[in-house]
Simulated scan of single mutants.
Amino acid sequence: MASVNHTHIHPNYHPPNYQKSSGFDILNPLRRLVDSIQIKNYRLAHLICQIIPCCCPFEREIRLFGRNFHIPALCKLNPLYDNFVGLRFRALSFLSDECGEDVTKYIC
Results as ranks from 00 to 15, higher is better:
H70M: 10
L77C: 12
C49D: 00
R43L: 11
A91R: 04
L74F: 02
N41H: 15
R63N: 04
P57F: 02
G66Y: 02
L77F: 13
I39Y: 05
F65M: 09
K76R: 14
C49L: 01
L47K: 15
D35P: 07
R88D: 00
R63V: 13
L74V: 01
R32E: 13
P79F: 11
R31T: 10
R43S: 13
I26Q: 15
F24H: 14
N68M: 09
R90L: 03
D35W: 10
V34G: 09
I71F: 09
H70R: 12
L92K: 01
S93T: 07
F69M: 08
R43G: 03
R60N: 08
D35T: 06
R63C: 09
H46V: 01
I51G: 01
R60M: 13
A73M: 08
H46D: 05
I37Q: 05
V85W: 03
R67Q: 06
E61C: 03
E98W: 07
H46C: 03
N28A: 09
A45R: 03
F24M: 06
L74A: 12
C56E: 10
C55L: 08
N28C: 05
F58L: 06
L80E: 04
E61T: 11
C55P: 00
P29K: 08
I37C: 02
P79T: 07
L74M: 06
E61H: 06
L92F: 05
F94L: 00
D25H: 09
R90D: 09
Y42H: 15
C54H: 14
Y81G: 03
L44D: 15
S96K: 12
I39L: 08
C54Q: 12
L44Q: 15
H46F: 04
N28W: 08
R60L: 09
Y81E: 10
G86V: 06
I71Q: 10
K40A: 11
G66R: 00
L77N: 13
I71G: 08
Y81I: 05
D35K: 10
S96C: 12
